[in-house]
Design a protein around this nucleic acid. Sequence first.
DNA 1: CCCAAGGTTATTGTTGAACAATTGGGCCCT
DNA 2: AGGGCCCAATTGTTCAACAATAACCTTGGG
Lengths: 232, 232
Amino acid sequence: MTLQDVLAELGATAKGTTHAATGLWVAEQLRHRIADGDLAPGTKLAEESLCEALGVSRNTLREAFTMLHAEHVVERIPNRGVFVARPSADDIRQIYRLRRFVEPAALLWSDDDGGLAALEAIVARAQVAAATLDITAMAGANQEFHRALVARAGSQYLNSTMELVLAQMRLVFHSMAVNPDFHAPYVAGNAQIVGLLREGNKAGAAELMTHYLGRAEAQLLAAMERSATHRR
Amino acid sequence: MTLQDVLAELGATAKGTTHAATGLWVAEQLRHRIADGDLAPGTKLAEESLCEALGVSRNTLREAFTMLHAEHVVERIPNRGVFVARPSADDIRQIYRLRRFVEPAALLWSDDDGGLAALEAIVARAQVAAATLDITAMAGANQEFHRALVARAGSQYLNSTMELVLAQMRLVFHSMAVNPDFHAPYVAGNAQIVGLLREGNKAGAAELMTHYLGRAEAQLLAAMERSATHRR
DNA sequence: CCCAAGGTTATTGTTGAACAATTGGGCCCT
DNA sequence: AGGGCCCAATTGTTCAACAATAACCTTGGG
């Protein structure tokens, strides 16, 4: 989908809507477009065209930009404009440094039945998606799994940080050609982790999670390396 | 210090300075003023007066507001304006839920000598401040201790989350009359924790940290309860 | 033919002013 | 005294302008 198409669609959606807090609304629209991959990483978000497409003023658009910038969803280069963020190898390392810290801890230190059934339901959804080869649904369910896992810790701060990280992960998936069945092994892995949790073996679950996270990071870094050299 | 005084000072500071990214500069100024307690929690930040004092336009000021809002440093009430945030009891509970999760984990899972000397230096500073009854320096050193402790985990995401939390904590201290030597017991506590760490007893250190954090939360909630009833 | 230097153009950064929308308080009436 | 209405003040949003910066294009030289 080209930038022009996105602009056209946004314009169509915008018509007739009343926005209580316009800046928030604009930020939300862009966030969704970016999350869905309609606006690919690296795309320049020119102010003038977006203003017109969204039917808002440049000032309001810029307010939305500062929000998205705070969320690391876009990158801002002075006097050059804002671009959809393109995570670097170092960003990936930062992401997984956090995840290897937070997710095992969430497994170890949560109440014994803090939403375990919910986790199992998500795993089941992922398995269905895997069986029907629905890559998108599989990726979505995997994200949902990790989000729910962290939510068990019961901390809003942690939840919003995790939300940032998952948004970055989507950008990672969009910004390079990852093997389509990258997600598949982790569906099984998540099932295994939930199984250990059900048995009450938290330490085992945490250890397995650490292992899988390390593996995923290595895979992504390798894939990034490949696409970097390939692009030269 | 009244709002008028702060405005006057800001005006004096602003003269002759060139600001590369004006919005960022304004946000920084306000952030510092709020952190230092010059702008007390609940203070209304009227747009017009601030514009004039800072020598920036309303639009730029509003850009700074959205940044500070994202950091939970100010509260925004539609059509009413922005106010310096006044943490609620629930905010305090959220803060400590995060800290009881993150800080013990940081103690347990950091490299054996990840900045241990730095932690000891901070504790020493806090002890000097306690001996000379310098409350402000004591509070500052305590904050520094927890910041450095989390930094040992090596995650930028965790660092910036912790930065948000510590900013909130400053607001808590400013928004209610906490016993002046509230901080004193924790200077000793932090020394104890570092001592255990030096012996290699991470589990003991983590346990003690959990204990102290629970104690601090209870104290703050009680103090908040007191000032709430007192104010009626 | 390639490269470098300089000017041109397009885009962003910032400001100021204008108008609509909403809130809170004062005023009047009962 | 209490309730409802109007007005003033402030915020939300837009528009238009100008300065500053960076990318592009042209031109001249090797």
